[in-house]
Design a protein around this nucleic acid. Structure first.
Lengths: 227, 227
DNA sequence: GTCGTGCCTGTCCGTCCGGACAGGGTGTGC
DNA sequence: GCACACCCTGTCCGGACGGACAGGCACGAC
């Protein structure tokens, strides 16, 4: 077992010490991570943040090398974590962002990488895996656990629901309105096209989705996540 | 700060020592919790489990006083955590189940309590709050952080979507079929009633939901969680 | 240019749907 | 008994819908 590091590393610490910031809205999770990471002599948790705004402020003040970011989701705002990821990587290009999250979603891994994340680790990882990932990212490399890497590959190769059904962009627009219960007339009005055209698109959508009634299409759309 | 306890408490330890089992599918979260809890001299993490099956087996072998249970959800199986909670509280009536989870859902707190949980703490709690909750549950009391308690009260007073809309049981049945895109004829066939009657119910549903088209009703139903 | 694709518009027709009638039956509670 | 809620059934009608015609326009690929 590694020896415990003191809460404050002495001045003149090893230049290879990695300064880490934790971003997670759950205090207990931050505590747990801090407790784990501080057992490693070369890792130092120098800051924490619980929200997007706090993270942006604190990262500027403390300048960590690594941000350990929980993408959480499933709470109120869908893409807060992704937004933060994008903002951080834009404002601090050298910053190593390592996503540590609960969710392993094929598309999410991709979106995180596109938002500037240099690593993606599911919380299901063990301590050594996490620490290895942190050191990798600190060295400028990327770090993905096996399942995240696989998910990324799948995400790249898995077409979206719309693509799977070969829906055209216009049809996607119509579907999203259709899925909200709008009538053909309403859809036409909303898209500045005639009711006939709306009907034309709806017909194509029904055919492509393999259903015959619009209510059924709404149900399919809700399953496909179009709503 | 409390002193660190050795990994194995010596025989003849304080009888008031609380033996804890951690149930969370994320190894890193378990590690973090263990690390936090073992700073307290009266708390001892004697077991961990990552799944429902493992938890049931391990709790029988190790007989902890407290199970710290992550209800997680949002993963594959919806009610695995709740099921486990119910099974544990039925098989081991004296066991103190403290739910420690990411989600604060009004209905979920209630369901957890009905499933036998003696406490509910959101992971957003700080260390002292969690430890206090564990000690409370170990003493046979219940433990809810302020927001969970409030959520429980709300959950008790918030009627379900169907109740809010004053839908009759039969209308709920019809709505669930309607929401799957079935036609009046299909609904009638499925419920062994005439198409006319299905239409009658659908009409009442539309009126009660305040919509005029069934596709709109499907959309509302998907928002209300009827699907 | 030709072809294919996406997008827009129209007509016709049969069906389904939604709304409004008008009943009958059951069970519960007062 | 009576009122009430819930459930079932039917008819009528106008409008919405779904399917199948038949066209037009713009754009990029070959």
């Amino acid at each position: 077992m590694a020896t415990l590091t003191p809460p404050e590393a002495p001045p003149g610490a090893d230049v290879r010490t990695v300064d880490i910031m934790l971003v997670d809205d759950h205090a207990i999770v931050r505590q747990g991570l801090r407790s784990i990471l501080e057992r490693e002599s070369d890792l130092r948790v120098i800051a924490e943040a619980a929200s997007r705004a706090e993270a942006l402020a604190v990262v500027g003040a403390t300048r960590p090398q690594i941000v350990l970011l929980d993408l959480k989701l499933s709470t109120s705002s869908d893409s807060e974590g992704l937004d933060l990821c994008a903002e951080l990587s834009e404002q601090y290009p050298g910053l190593g962002i390592l996503v540590l999250t609960t969710f392993l979603d094929d598309a999410l891994v991709l979106r995180a990488v596109r938002a500037g994340a240099r690593g993606y680790v599911v919380k299901d990882v063990d301590t050594s895996g996490l620490i290895r990932a942190i050191r990798d990212v600190a060295r400028g490399e990327s770090a993905f656990d096996a399942r995240s890497a696989a998910a990324m590959v799948r995400g790249l190769n898995t077409p979206t629901a719309a693509e799977q059904k070969h829906l055209t962009p216009r049809e996607c627009e119509v579907l999203s309105l259709l899925a909200r219960g709008l009538s053909n007339r309403d859809i036409g009005g909303r898209l500045y096209i005639s009711e006939t055209t709306a009907k034309f698109h709806v017909g194509n959508i029904l055919r492509k989705l393999g259903v015959t009634r619009r209510a059924e299409a709404v149900y399919e759309a809700s399953k496909l996540g179009v709503i």
